[in-house]
């Protein structure tokens, strides 16, 4: 059978979500952000909730989320996405509201807003992409940077004695009564991507059931910031990031799908 015969509408088994605008992602080649951005729209499309979903983009690499998504999007001030989501969800309680934030946004400048929104149990989905660095501004040290890791503001490696320890904010969120579902995933292998997609689905389903805050961390590489190739950085992430940020569910309320 010729390839041209296989490439036929009736044989289609996978295509990018129709809820993407078609604009090329602005992320660096190989960046996991693109995978997560894509997965969110796949879940929204599969749940058929595109008319009822509003996304909130942060300040960081994913600030231009609204260029890629054919849904309503609000761009929030740095770190304030969960506060913006709170205001929006409170006046639109039957809509699906999600924030998409990086570690600089969510775990540094937005720590207060993150903790309190999750603690109030705002019925929202928080998607947290943790690559241990400030990608957009050029690879500076983040609260999540692991010990010894070199960044442009820790050029001799993060020294925990003076620069503090990596912040596992997801563990803190898991300890909050308002959070109903807290998980840490990755997108470096096809299996990991499938798991992340399932986690995102659960996180959105929880909104329908008004369960509280769902929090999905995705540990991700930033090979531009880390000064590696995409494949090298995925290996480096497995060897160095995962010991600090072990994958898996941190909190699952009873009865969750």
């Amino acid at each position: 059978m010729e390839v041209q015969e296989i490439i036929n509408e009736k044989n289609l088994v996978y295509q990018p979500s129709k809820l993407l605008t078609g604009a090329a992602f602005n992320f660096c080649p190989g960046c996991g952000h693109g995978t997560v951005v894509r997965l969110v729209m796949e879940v929204v499309e599969e749940m058929d909730i595109q008319s009822d979903v509003i996304g909130i983009s942060p300040v960081g690499c994913s600030v231009l989320l609204y260029d890629f998504y054919n849904i309503d999007v609000i761009q929030a001030a740095h770190g304030r996405a969960t506060a913006v989501a709170t205001g929006l969800k409170r006046v639109l309680p039957d809509k699906f509201v999600f924030t998409y934030q990086g570690d600089g946004d969510l775990a540094a400048i937005g720590t207060g807003e993150t903790i309190h929104a999750c603690n109030r149990g705002e019925n929202i989905t928080v998607i947290y992409v943790n690559n241990g660095t400030y990608g957009m501004t050029g690879g500076q040290m983040a609260p999540t940077t692991i010990p010894g890791m070199k960044t442009s503001t820790s050029p001799r490696g993060r020294d925990v004695a003076t620069m503090g320890h990596p912040l596992r904010i997801t563990d803190i969120v898991a300890s909050l009564d308002g959070a109903c579902y807290v998980t840490r995933q990755a997108v470096h292998t096809p299996a990991a991507v499938r798991k992340t997609k399932r986690a995102l689905r659960t996180a959105f389903e929880n909104q329908k059931l008004k369960r509280g805050t769902s929090f999905v961390e995705v540990v991700c590489s930033c090979h531009s910031g880390w000064k590696m190739t995409p494949l090298q950085s995925n290996r480096w992430m497995e060897e160095n990031m995962f010991p600090y940020y072990p994958l898996g569910d941190l909190k699952v309320m009873n009865g969750q799908t």
């Binding site: 059978m1 390839v3 015969e5 296989i6 490439i7 036929n8 044989n11 289609l12 088994v13 996978y14 295509q15 990018p16 979500s17 993407l20 090329a24 992602f25 992320f27 080649p29 190989g30 960046c31 996991g32 952000h33 693109g34 995978t35 894509r38 997108v187 292998t189 096809p190 991507v193 499938r194 997609k197």
Partner: peptide, 28 residues
């Protein structure tokens, strides 16, 4: 691009790992 088209099984691994949503997959 597909360098060895006859070996493709349409498993979709490439498409779901693609950070740019650049791949569509067909299977028969």
């Amino acid at each position: 691009e597909m360098a060895f088209a006859d070996k493709c099984t349409g498993c979709v691994n490439c498409a779901i790992i693609c950070p740019d949503g650049a791949i569509s997959v067909y299977r028969v």
